[in-house]
């Protein structure tokens, strides 16, 4: 055995981290690039605050689905839960008062569980299933709200400023992120979900109840989306949205994939999604400050999604049938 004389300048810990999370390099690169290009506007406190705000939005939307993506499925229902949840809060407000916000949580868990059961038992591709559900929820939202956004007052405390320049929603998101990362990295559940995404038949042979854990993955996704949407409800304006915007749907997906979770599952997960969300936000704020036309920005986001899907797909090593 011979050890090659490696680079002594950079500590091995950093090399290992960069190898495992190459998106950090991209993050640093875009950050440095825009800092040089627009020193005063990009490196301003206001911009940092905006970045944090957008980061929170992305992270809270993407946390749940990134658990499902690890198992090799896809969950697009998050926007639907957020929209329908908002309208249900508006409807329940007169009866339940402030407790009505919990309706979003219930809706999230119930939706996730339902998707899980249908997907596991009927073997319908999760992409189609959750997409149809999203459209259904959207329609239901518009119908219940009568087509207009409805403003709900009383939940301002959720985002009441605590620390200057730090959005309170960001503080809320910290324990949520920790919980998700903890479940995926330090518990049996997480291990089994990675196993299913990495090699479903192998998981079955190892005596894992694959259907049960798939249902659990979707339920967890619904749970995290539910918790996140309670915060996002106020964070994004305290009113019930009735328009389905493509960006709301696509950006969290970009965050997941950019972070390095391949859509076929088996690796990545919430801890990478945070990095992906941060990188995307920094990138987006940068191009936003640039003189680029909004259409060009849209085009860039699309290209970014394609590139990151291609790169993260190679994360699944071991397919060496050369």
């Amino acid at each position: 055995m011979k050890r090659s004389s490696g680079n002594r300048l950079i500590p091995p810990v950093i090399i290992r981290t960069l190898k495992n999370q190459p998106v950090i390099i991209a993050l640093i690169a875009v950050f440095v690039m825009f800092s040089i290009l627009y020193p005063d506007r990009f490196l301003s406190l206001l911009n940092f605050k905006t970045i944090l705000r957008q980061f929170v939005t992305l992270t809270l939307f993407a946390m749940g689905p990134s658990i499902v993506v690890v198992t090799g499925s896809l969950d697009l229902s998050y926007v639907g839960i957020w929209m329908l949840g908002g309208v249900l809060v508006w409807l329940c407000m007169p009866v339940l008062g402030l407790f009505s916000i919990l309706v979003i949580l219930l809706l999230g868990v119930a939706t996730g569980f339902l998707i899980g059961v249908i997907q596991a038992k009927a073997k319908i591709p999760s992409f189609i299933l959750t997409l149809s559900l999203l459209v259904t929820y959207w329609g239901l939202t518009a119908k219940l709200a009568g087509g207009y956004p409805r403003i709900v007052r009383g939940f301002e405390f959720i985002t009441a400023p605590l620390i200057p320049y730090i959005p309170t929603a960001f503080l809320w998101s910290i324990p949520i992120i920790f919980a998700a990362v903890f479940i995926m990295k330090y518990t049996r559940i997480g291990t089994y979900l990675y196993a299913i995404g990495s090699n479903e038949e192998g998981a079955r042979l190892a005596g894992i109840n694959v259907d049960k854990y798939k249902i659990l993955a979707f339920t967890l996704s619904g749970l995290f989306t539910g918790i996140g949407s309670m915060i996002l409800f106020q964070h994004l304006g305290g009113s019930t949205p009735v328009e389905l915007k493509l960006n709301t749907l696509v950006w969290p997906l970009v965050a997941i994939v950019l972070g390095g979770t391949p859509l076929m599952g088996g690796s990545g997960g919430p801890q990478r999604t945070i990095l992906g969300a941060l990188t995307f936000t920094v990138f987006y704020r940068g191009v936003y400050l640039s003189p680029l036309h909004p259409y060009s920005i849209q085009l860039l986001v699309g290209l970014l999604l394609i590139v990151s899907i291609t790169v993260s797909a190679r994360g699944l090593k071991g397919v060496t049938i050369t």
């Binding site: 990495s198 090699n199 038949e201 192998g202 042979l205 088996g266 699944l316 090593k317 071991g318």
Partner: peptide
């Protein structure tokens, strides 16, 4: 090929 998680 069936049992192992190759990327683990």
């Amino acid at each position: 090929g069936k049992e192992l998680f190759f990327n683990w």
